[in-house]
């Protein structure tokens, strides 16, 4: 059974048709990269997968379960899907450690010492094991984003969503975040990544989709995508970012 199935999804903001008949399937352990120009609906699509946005038509299934069903427990669903934002969105009033342990303790009722042990191990894994007791503002952008990834991983999610995780970073910090994401991909995490980091896409993506004006215009392996794009707009887009 596929991890994520998106069937005929349509969504409007008022009159604005932001997602147009989206169909996509992501298998367990697959890494899907979503790219496209600004305003094309990439963030909206990703946010529909954990129901931060509602859809108007169609359905999204996670392991066969319709997550936009009325009786779906939304918090239960989100506990299994990690999300990482462009702006990190760490909680500034909590230490790095508390940022990571909060959801496991409150949502999954994991005891504090166990949650802290997990958090410290995750921080170690993303390369900032010695920063646990600092506040987010005391860290660099790249470190903050790695904390955000650790925070999402602390819930032991089945799926990780990334919405332009490196776009707000200074160039010299991009790789430290991408490396963490690459490790995750290699460990078999199912990932949806909105990113324009084409090196990342080449290296770890199983498939790339290109969105424009709310539609998926082009899809294929990174190989196909970079060497023989079919659509004019894909070619124009690639020319711009490469």
């Amino acid at each position: 059974m596929p991890m994520i199935e998106i069937h005929n999804v349509n969504k409007w903001y008022g009159d604005f048709h932001v997602l147009k008949n989206i169909n996509e399937t992501v298998e367990k352990g697959e890494v899907l990269v979503i790219c496209g120009p600004s305003g094309s609906g990439k963030s909206t699509l990703v946010r529909c997968v954990n129901r931060l946005e509602e859809i108007d038509q169609g359905e999204i299934l996670i392991e066969g379960k319709n997550i936009h069903a009325k009786d779906q427990d939304i918090n239960q669903l989100r506990a299994e899907i990690g999300i990482v934002f462009q702006q990190f969105n760490l909680y500034p009033h909590l230490t790095v450690l508390r940022n990571i342990t909060l959801a496991p303790m409150k949502v999954k009722k994991i005891p504090r010492d166990e949650a802290e042990a997990t958090a410290l191990a995750l921080l170690e894994r993303v390369g900032i094991g010695n920063q646990a007791h600092k506040y987010p503002v005391e860290l660099s952008g790249g470190q903050q984003q790695r904390v955000a990834i650790a925070r999402a991983l602390a819930m032991k999610p089945k799926i990780m969503l990334f919405d332009e995780p490196t776009s707000a970073l200074d160039p010299e910090m991009i790789n430290e975040v991408l490396n963490v994401m690459k490790d995750l991909a290699r460990e078999g995490m199912t990932m949806l990544c909105v990113t324009h980091e084409m090196g990342f896409a080449r290296e770890v993506a199983d498939r790339v989709i290109f969105m424009d004006h709310g539609e998926i215009l082009e899809r294929g392996t990174p190989e196909h995508f970079f060497t023989s794009p079919q659509h004019e707009r894909t070619k124009a887009f690639l020319k711009e970012i490469l």
Binding site: N50, L52, N75, Q76, R78, A79, G82, I83, F85, Q87, N89, L90, Y91, L102, A103, K106, V107, K108, A148, R151, A152, M155
Partner: peptide, 21 residues
């Protein structure tokens, strides 16, 4: 900032938990 509520809800906290914590 709106991102705070989104991050909190996105991690599975309820609206009330996100408000309180």
């Amino acid at each position: 900032p709106k991102g705070q509520m989104e991050a909190a809800r996105g991690s599975g906290l309820s609206h009330t938990q996100a408000m309180v914590h």
